[in-house]
Amino acid sequence: MTENRVAVVTGASRGAGKGIALALGAAGMTVYVTGRTRAEGGADLPGTVSGTAEEIDARGGTGVPVICDHSDDAQVRALFERVEREHGALDVLVNNAFTIPDGLTDKGPFWEKPLALQSMFDVGMRSAYVASYYAAPLLIERDTALVVNTSSFGGRCYMHGPAYGAGKAAVDKMAHDMAEDFRPHNVAVISLWMGLLKTERNRALFDGVPDRYESFAAGAETPEFSGRLIDALARSADPMKWTGQVLIGAELGAELGVTDIDGSRPRSHRGMLGDPPTFSAAVVK
């Protein structure tokens, strides 16, 4: 990888994307931070793209805030045109933008939940494809580069219903198939199953009912752990070793010697939630 590394992290006003962006910034990267929130109060939860970028600067990286609605292909294209003008290439793309509709975690069958849950197919599944499409010419300019789709065990087990599960399974398979196309260009593509995260949303949940969620909170990862994993993977001697795979973050951390910000080692939920999928090696073109 080049010394002046450039990353794009989508959906990084808050949550997993913010933690990933901060960790990459702390590793010295220039990080383009995308999201829709311009100012505090513009969303139900705290966090803005400029706030994330400023914190990246404070940690030694360079944060570049970009207001971008990832449901709008023209805005996504403009984002990567800007990266091309300013840097000419891209080292790391993290497809993290994701919409969380009201009713996602409601109890009951899918037909009793809002039909709007299908919006996860747009900002989530589809947005990962579009961002990768426009980023591809920049990624192949590097000797080696990395694409990460953030995902979860919901791609394999029942989690929040079929809309959520279908979206996560899709980005997992997308990583596998994009890896085949990127392979001749030495661009590694993986899908990363994160554990329960200490995001702004989940912290509010933990604090609201501490007795109920105490055990969950104790085993949660910080969002920055995922960013540390991505940086370690990008810096590894052979990122192509993992290309096309769905990886459990906690297990990748153990393999790469990466710890969370407090020095702890998050534990894998494989035993409770299941194994990552194994895809066929067959290639039909």
Rank of each mutant, 00 (worst) to 15 (best):
E55M: 11
T2R: 14
D262Q: 01
G42K: 09
G60V: 07
A78D: 14
P109A: 11
D275W: 04
W111T: 14
D69Q: 09
G60W: 07
L24T: 11
Y213F: 15
R267I: 05
A16V: 15
T99G: 15
F80Q: 13
S268C: 03
L22I: 05
E3M: 11
A12Y: 08
G165K: 00
F121P: 09
Y164C: 09
V8I: 11
E180T: 11
L229K: 03
H185Q: 13
R212W: 08
T243R: 00
G253Q: 05
G208E: 08
A23F: 07
P46T: 07
P46W: 06
A135I: 02
A136D: 05
I230F: 06
Y158D: 15
S226G: 13
V258G: 05
I56R: 08
V92E: 09
L22T: 05
A21H: 07
T99R: 13
M194T: 15
Q118L: 14
E112G: 14
K241L: 03
A250S: 10
E54Q: 14
A78H: 13
A169Y: 02
T222A: 01
L117W: 12
I20S: 00
A12N: 07
L117R: 11
E141T: 12
G60C: 06
Y134W: 12
A204K: 15
V246S: 04
D181A: 03
V171G: 01
V123L: 02
D122K: 11
L117I: 12
R82S: 13
S280I: 01
R265N: 12
G41N: 07
R38A: 14
W242D: 01
Y134E: 04
P223A: 01
V33R: 11
F98N: 15
W111E: 15
Y164Q: 09
P277M: 00
